[in-house]
């Protein structure tokens, strides 16, 4: 055990690029992680909106104004896309956890379903709201 250099081991992204070819399954997996963690920004904006609504009309006007501005709309639309993607990808993980659809063609089909489904759900949400 003594000759193992603990604490200086390569961590996972080291193989991306030179040693590893991106496939649909790995791309959609990385997107799950990016969307899930990026949603903390959306949560911060929404928490600000709720805190402003409690604080009073002036604070609400500021927060609501920023979030419904053109830039806020852009951030919220991308958040919606990320949220639907992460939700669908999460359902995909629940399916895989039951040892179902793990064969490569089926796994890739689920990957396309997540990518396409998130775009469709985002457009549907924008139309409904």
């Amino acid at each position: 055990m003594a000759d193992i250099p603990r604490g200086n081991r390569p961590l996972s992204p080291y193989m991306l690029g030179p040693y590893y070819r991106i496939q649909l399954t790995s791309l959609t997996s990385i997107l799950t992680r990016i969307t899930g963690n990026a949603l903390i920004v959306t949560t911060a904006l929404i928490a600000w909106w709720f805190a402003a609504l409690v604080s009073g009309p002036e604070a609400y006007a500021t927060a609501n104004g920023v979030i419904t501005s053109w830039f806020g709309d852009l951030v919220m639309t991308l958040s919606l896309l990320g949220l639907w993607y992460h939700t669908l990808a999460g359902i995909r993980h629940l399916i895989w956890d039951n040892l179902a659809m793990l064969e490569v063609p089926k796994a890739e089909m689920l990957g396309w379903a997540c990518l396409g489904g998130s775009v469709v759900l985002t457009l549907l949400t924008i139309i409904i709201l």
């Binding site: 903390i40 949560t43 911060a44 929404i46 928490a47 709720f50 805190a51 609504l53 409690v54």
Partner: peptide
Amino acid sequence: LLAIGAFS
């Protein structure tokens, strides 16, 4: 963020 959101 949990506290800010839940309290509000």
